[in-house]
Simulated scan of single mutants.
Amino acid sequence: MQSSIGVGFLGAGPVTQAIHLPTLARLGAAFTVRHVTDIDADVAAAVAGRAGAAHSTSVEALLDDPAVEVVAICSPNAFHAEQVIAACQAGKKAVLCEKPLAMSAAEAAAIAAVSAETGVPIFVGAMHSFDPGWRAAVAQWGALPRTSHTIRSSIVLPPNSRFEDVATEVLTRQPFPAPDYSDVAVLPGMTHAGVMGLAIHDLPLIRSLLPRYDDLRVIDAKFLAPFGYRILFVAGGKSIELHAVMSQTWQPDWALEVFADDQVLNVEFAPSYVHAGSAVSRLSTSESTQVFGPAEVNGYEVEWRELAAVVHGELAPPDLSTLVDDVRFALTLADASADAVRSTPSAEDAA
């Protein structure tokens, strides 16, 4: 029988509380939560107490803990790169970093270098890439990456708290500050954050359909209040539309569509924080429609299962060059979208 893998969490916010801890609980003896670190000592203690784990407010304390074999990084985006690097240098067996892996091309390159030097495998928690419903469609889509000409991602969600509270009782949720639209840097910054925080879920999927993205060009970008974006861009000879808004909608909807002249793929994802099985994918031609999913497990569970398989030597680690290229693609799009919004940064445009 394989031994349980000890996990340490850097960051004890809603992602840890409402996504990863419930997922690990479903996996039974495969993992044991050993250490939880958060800058808020009370939150660290309370979340760790749920799992019977040690707690601290120090990254070094977690990395020095010999019971921690795998580090899960669920801290704010700005800290991801330095914490991934530190976990690799600490000689851990694997690192799971929430998306995005890095916030600059230089950070991504530094992560690639230290992972290659230490041999520590890195996973990025892009759950849609692991989703069984998506993967089943990929296995059957044939020439779609070559023949598709249009890609559309549409995300309409209420605030995350609605789903976080279904998953667990979240402690000390941070309030979302009211934007100061009189500051000309706000709308470009929020658009950039939207790409790196929300669109990032599906950008690896979109990139897998592109032959190249060095020709990426944003045609139009607009910030949508209270939080969202509408971005139209071209890359690799294809037209891509990203639309997202988080508001008080009663009906959540998360869809990715891919169009070719003779084939259409439609993927319906559950909202983040929802533990209700996989996506449902429909691959259609003029003659038939294949339906994949829903599977009983979701992408969160698959990513942890595959991490365990890598730690136990049963599976090859993820291709780090692919993960780094996903980051570069996202950053290229985020920067270009922010630049496009910066040309019309008025509060009226945000409304």
Rank of each mutant, 00 (worst) to 15 (best):
L187Q: 08
P211K: 02
V218G: 03
G237Q: 06
T191R: 01
A235F: 00
I200K: 01
P204G: 01
P226A: 11
I155L: 10
D183K: 01
S161R: 10
Y213Q: 03
L157C: 14
V184G: 00
T191I: 05
F163Y: 03
T150H: 15
S154R: 05
V218W: 06
L210A: 06
A225W: 07
L187N: 05
R230A: 10
P175K: 12
M196A: 06
S208C: 00
R162F: 04
Q174T: 15
D183E: 13
S154N: 12
L198W: 06
A178S: 13
V234R: 12
I155V: 15
R230I: 06
F227A: 12
R146I: 04
L224S: 06
F223E: 00
A143H: 15
D215P: 08
D215T: 09
S154G: 05
P158G: 08
F176Q: 13
L203Q: 04
A178D: 05
H192W: 06
D180T: 05
L210I: 02
L198T: 06
S154L: 03
P204Y: 05
Q174A: 15
D165F: 09
L157H: 10
A185Q: 07
S239W: 06
G237T: 02
Q174E: 09
F176W: 09
K238C: 05
V186A: 03
D202R: 10
I219K: 11
H192A: 11
A225E: 08
M190T: 08
H192T: 09
L144Y: 12
D214V: 08
Q174C: 13
L242C: 07
P226M: 09
D180N: 12
G236M: 08
R152S: 10
D165P: 09
E241W: 10
L224G: 02
A221E: 03
T168R: 07
T191V: 03
V138S: 04
G197E: 08
P211N: 09
M196F: 09
S161E: 08
L198D: 00
L203K: 01
S182M: 07
Y213D: 11
F176S: 12
G189D: 13
V170A: 08
P226L: 12
L232M: 12
A199Y: 04
R230P: 03
F176K: 15
P226R: 11
T172D: 12
A185K: 04
A225M: 07
A143K: 14
K238F: 08
M190D: 01
A199C: 08
R152N: 07
R173A: 06
D202P: 02
V218M: 03
P175R: 13
L157W: 04
A193D: 02
L216M: 12
G142H: 09
K238D: 09
I206M: 00
L216G: 10
H149G: 13
A143E: 15
P226H: 11
F176P: 00
V156F: 01
R217D: 07
D180F: 04
F163N: 00
A139C: 09
A225S: 15
V166C: 10
R217W: 05
L171V: 11
T191A: 03
D214I: 13
L157D: 03
D183C: 12
R230E: 14
V170K: 11
T172I: 04
G189R: 02
F163P: 11
F227S: 07
L216V: 03
A193F: 08
V156K: 13
H149D: 14
I231N: 01
L209W: 01
P226Y: 07
